[in-house]
């Protein structure tokens, strides 16, 4: 989780990723940031995020992104 927060902070330094829970709906992460984020997460955690998982509920908070990573690691 710490590494994920680091990646997120590197992409968007002005956002407090420990508290914000509407990263997509509040437009903190736009489509371009998502592209960087997905590529970075895949490389860091050795997983593949299917495009079908790129939905607001999976990316609205650091916690939900982490849960997605955990889920994909298990598969």
């Amino acid at each position: 989780m710490e590494r994920l927060i680091e990646i997120l902070e590197e992409l968007q330094p002005d956002v407090d990723f420990n508290t914000v829970e509407n990263l997509i709906d509040g437009r903190y992460l736009d489509s371009l940031t998502i592209l960087s984020l997905v590529a970075e997460i895949e490389e860091e955690f050795d997983i593949e995020i299917p495009t079908v998982e790129i939905i607001p509920s999976n990316f609205n908070s650091a916690k939900s992104i982490w849960e997605l990573i955990e889920k994909l690691k298990e598969q």
Binding site: L32, T33, L35, S36, A39, E40, E42, T51
Partner: peptide, 25 residues
């Protein structure tokens, strides 16, 4: 599906290193 295809993801990672977080992707 286009921007996150395997080739594009590689391109994004490479471009980020050169162009930074904003212009990379």
């Amino acid at each position: 599906p286009v921007s996150l295809s395997k080739r594009m993801k590689k391109l994004t990672l490479k471009a980020r290193k050169i162009l930074g977080n904003r212009f990379g992707p």
